[in-house]
C-alpha cells in the first residue's frame, strides 16, 4: 500500500501531504522568528533611551537596500522556475532556478562584506544589546538562506532533478514547496530590514 496524496490532493482537505507539511513547518518558523522579534521589542523597551537608535545608525542602509532588492528578485525567479515546470519547459526552469541561486549567493556576499566591515570597526555581537540582536537575527536568517540554497541546489543539479523524467508532477510539487519556504525566508528579511536598519 502506497502512502496516498503525495501528488494528488485529498478531496476533502484539498491538500497534498507536503503542502500541508510545509505550512505547518512555516507556522513553527513564524513562532521561532516571532519569539526573536518579541525579544527584540522587549530588549528595546528595556534599553536606555536612544541606545538602540545610536547603534542602529552604524548599520549600512544602502547595502541592506540592495540586499532587499536582491532577495525580492530571487523570490520572483523562484516563482518563474516553478511556473516553467508547470508549462513543461525544463530548460527555462534550469535557468530561473540558477538565477535564484545566483541572487541568493549575491545576498550572502553582500552580507559577508557587511559583517566584516563591522568586525573591522571593532563591532561584535558583544558590543551592545542592539548589535547582539542584530547579529543573532541576521545570522539565523542567513542560516535559513544557506539551508534553502542547499535544497534548491540539489534540485538544480543533475542528480537532484532526474525526478523530472520519472515523476514530473511530483518534482513540480517539490519546487513549489521549496518556493513556499523561500518566500518565507524572503518575508522574514522584509521584517528584519525595517526594524534593524530603518527604525
Amino acid at each position: 500500500m502506497q502512502i496516498p496524496y503525495i501528488t494528488e490532493e485529498r478531496p476533502d482537505t484539498g491538500l497534498t501531504n507536503s503542502k500541508l507539511g510545509i505550512w505547518v513547518f512555516l507556522a513553527s518558523e513564524i513562532m521561532l522568528f516571532g519569539g526573536l522579534f518579541s525579544a527584540y521589542v522587549f530588549l528595546r523597551i528595556a534599553a536606555p533611551e536612544g541606545d538602540f537608535a545610536y547603534w542602529g545608525s552604524k548599520l549600512n542602509i544602502p547595502m541592506a537596500t540592495i540586499n532587499t532588492l536582491v532577495l525580492i528578485s530571487s523570490s520572483m525567479t523562484m516563482i518563474m522556475s516553478w511556473a516553467s515546470l508547470k508549462m513543461k519547459d525544463f530548460e527555462k526552469y534550469k535557468m530561473y532556478m540558477g538565477l535564484t541561486l545566483l541572487f541568493a549567493s549575491i545576498f550572502l556576499v553582500i552580507k559577508y562584506f557587511e559583517y566584516t566591515g563591522k568586525f573591522h570597526h571593532g563591532i561584535y555581537p558583544s558590543s551592545s544589546t542592539f548589535m547582539g540582536i542584530y547579529f543573532t537575527l541576521t545570522g539565523l536568517h542567513m542560516l535559513h538562506i544557506i539551508g534553502g540554497m542547499i535544497v534548491m541546489g540539489y534540485f538544480w543539479l543533475p542528480f537532484g532533478n532526474k525526478m523530472w523524467t520519472t515523476e514530473p508532477e511530483r518534482f513540480t510539487n517539490r519546487i513549489e514547496i521549496a518556493g513556499l519556504y523561500w518566500h518565507f525566508v524572503d518575508l522574514v528579511w522584509i521584517f528584519l530590514f525595517p526594524i534593524l536598519y530603518l527604525l
Partner: peptide
C-alpha cells in the same frame, strides 16, 4: 509545533 520554537529562540539567545 507552536510552543517549542520560542524556546529555541531563547536557547539561541542564551547560547549567544
Amino acid at each position: 509545533v507552536l510552543a517549542f520554537p520560542p524556546l529555541e529562540a531563547a536557547a539561541v539567545l542564551q547560547l549567544m
